[in-house]
Simulated assay, not measured.
Amino acid sequence: MSDFKPYANESDVIRIGALEVENRTDRVSLTGDVVLTRDKAGLALAREILVLMEQVVKALEAEQELPDAVKIHAAKVVKNPF
């Protein structure tokens, strides 16, 4: 996960358990679920999520002029160019 840079591009996707983390330039989307069991496997997943969240917070805190809110536009359906 060290290569994941929040808000850096429109293409990175990583998985933590069944949790999918999608990178965008204006947001990081978390979908799916992850079960943090009370064992070594659960601890490993919790640590991965913690590292991810620390990266997100660090990226947001580094912004000089963070807006109050980002407007998220609905996805557009486009004609297949092929």
Rank of each mutant, 00 (worst) to 15 (best):
35 V>E: 01
43 L>H: 08
13 V>R: 12
40 K>I: 02
36 L>T: 02
24 R>Y: 15
38 R>H: 02
42 G>I: 00
34 V>E: 01
43 L>W: 05
31 T>C: 12
43 L>S: 05
12 D>Y: 11
9 N>R: 12
41 A>G: 05
13 V>G: 03
46 A>G: 01
21 V>F: 05
31 T>F: 10
33 D>P: 07
17 G>I: 01
8 A>W: 11
25 T>S: 13
32 G>W: 04
43 L>N: 03
7 Y>M: 14
16 I>R: 02
43 L>D: 04
49 I>G: 00
26 D>Y: 11
50 L>E: 09
9 N>E: 12
43 L>K: 08
30 L>R: 04
41 A>R: 10
6 P>E: 09
20 E>F: 08
16 I>L: 06
47 R>N: 14
17 G>C: 11
22 E>L: 10
42 G>N: 02
21 V>S: 03
23 N>L: 09
21 V>C: 06
35 V>K: 03
31 T>V: 13
37 T>D: 03
9 N>H: 13
25 T>D: 11
14 I>A: 06
29 S>P: 07
12 D>H: 08
19 L>V: 07
34 V>I: 05
48 E>L: 06
44 A>I: 08
24 R>S: 12
40 K>Q: 08
43 L>Q: 07
28 V>P: 02
7 Y>D: 09
38 R>M: 03
18 A>W: 08
5 K>W: 12
6 P>V: 11
17 G>D: 04
24 R>T: 08
28 V>S: 04
25 T>F: 13
36 L>H: 02
19 L>Y: 08
11 S>E: 15
25 T>R: 15
31 T>E: 15
15 R>L: 13
17 G>E: 04
33 D>R: 14
